[in-house]
């Protein structure tokens, strides 16, 4: 579906995307993970054919975006990071007008609009203007709108950022259904639970480069241990304790309020810690998550 080779995007001196290689296969859900400024959105804009690559090659649906932009876009659905709904129109008109942009006939878009409003659970708000809708409703409408042309490939840039938990679960449900019906999904996110829920395969980006690639399970296996043991001590500084347990785990990380011990068996490690006479205030053994991988790969420092 998408094939990028040494794909690069520069804005003047700044390199947003630095020679990445990506292959996305038909029918899969593919994720771009990364902190803000990692180059996810720039990559998505290039795939959406609204930002010409500076260097490298990019083929989408077997076509070249530089020459076939309109015909590629005719087969894509795009859900941008920020809702770009048409606030001068009603909910229903947003879908109608958007469908017309794809050259669909009026009869086609009318039928499609009813179906999509149902899908997005917005039938009751069909004739309301867009402005007073909640964030979740606007997001659902944006997704419904992006499906008006029955896209083969759906691009979602941070689909659930800023939504409450209920709204996120409703959206995930809709995306699952799409995937089951054969739509290829490409999404960016910085929510690890979202990536684990939705993605078959993903890449982690940092500073414009791809730093890891694989399925969520593969990434955990490769870049983390099976489990993580979290220890909290009655101290402001946990550094001294780290030295005492460093040989008990594959890797030890010091956080301001706790220690993280990366290990394959959390309970055994916890017993070993207590065996050394150390008495943490709290002990928690849990499975490794994508979040551990992510923070390990991209660091804990804030990037803005």
């Amino acid at each position: 579906m998408i094939s990028a080779h040494r794909l690069t995007k520069r804005f003047g001196e700044f390199t947003a995307v630095d020679a990445i290689d990506v292959e996305v296969r038909r029918g899969e859900a593919f994720g771009f993970l990364g902190p803000n400024g990692a180059g996810k959105s720039s990559t998505m804009r290039m795939i959406g054919c609204v930002s010409p690559p500076t260097d490298g090659s990019l083929r989408i649906l077997g076509l070249d975006p530089a020459t076939d932009g309109p015909s590629i876009r005719a087969r894509l659905g795009v859900v941008p990071q920020r809702d770009t709904l048409d606030e001068e129109l009603t909910v229903r008109e947003n879908i109608l007008v958007y469908g017309r942009y794809f050259g669909l006939s009026r009869a086609q878009v009318r039928a499609k609009a009813d179906e999509l409003l149902e899908f997005a659970q917005l039938t009751e708000r069909a004739n309301s203007v867009v402005e007073p809708l909640s964030g979740g409703m606007k997001r659902r409408l944006t997704i419904a709108r992006s499906l008006v042309n029955d896209p083969e490939l759906l691009l979602l840039d941070e689909p659930t950022t800023g939504l409450d938990p209920q709204a996120r679960h409703v959206l995930w449900d809709r995306l699952f259904r799409l995937k089951r019906s054969g739509v290829t999904l490409v999404l960016t996110t910085h929510y690890m639970d979202e990536a684990e829920q939705l993605c078959d395969r993903l890449v982690v980006m940092d500073g414009g480069r791809i730093v890891a690639e694989g399925s969520p399970r593969e990434l955990i296996a490769l870049h983390s241990t099976r489990e993580v043991l979290e220890l909290r001590f009655a101290a402001d500084d946990h550094t001294p304790y780290a030295a005492k347990v460093t040989d008990l785990a594959e890797r030890v990380e010091v956080l301001p309020d706790r220690l993280l011990l990366y290990t394959d068996d959390g309970d055994a490690t916890a017993a070993a810690v207590q065996g050394r006479g150390l008495e943490p205030l709290s002990v928690l053994a849990r499975r490794s998550t994508l979040e551990d991988v992510f923070l390990h790969l991209t660091g804990r420092t804030l990037v803005d």
Binding site: V50, R73, P80, T84, L85, D86, Y101, F102, N149
Partner: peptide, 14 residues
Amino acid sequence: YAKLYDSVLATPLG
């Protein structure tokens, strides 16, 4: 403000 063309350019329109 409305960013209208951002959504328009995601379609076949140029």
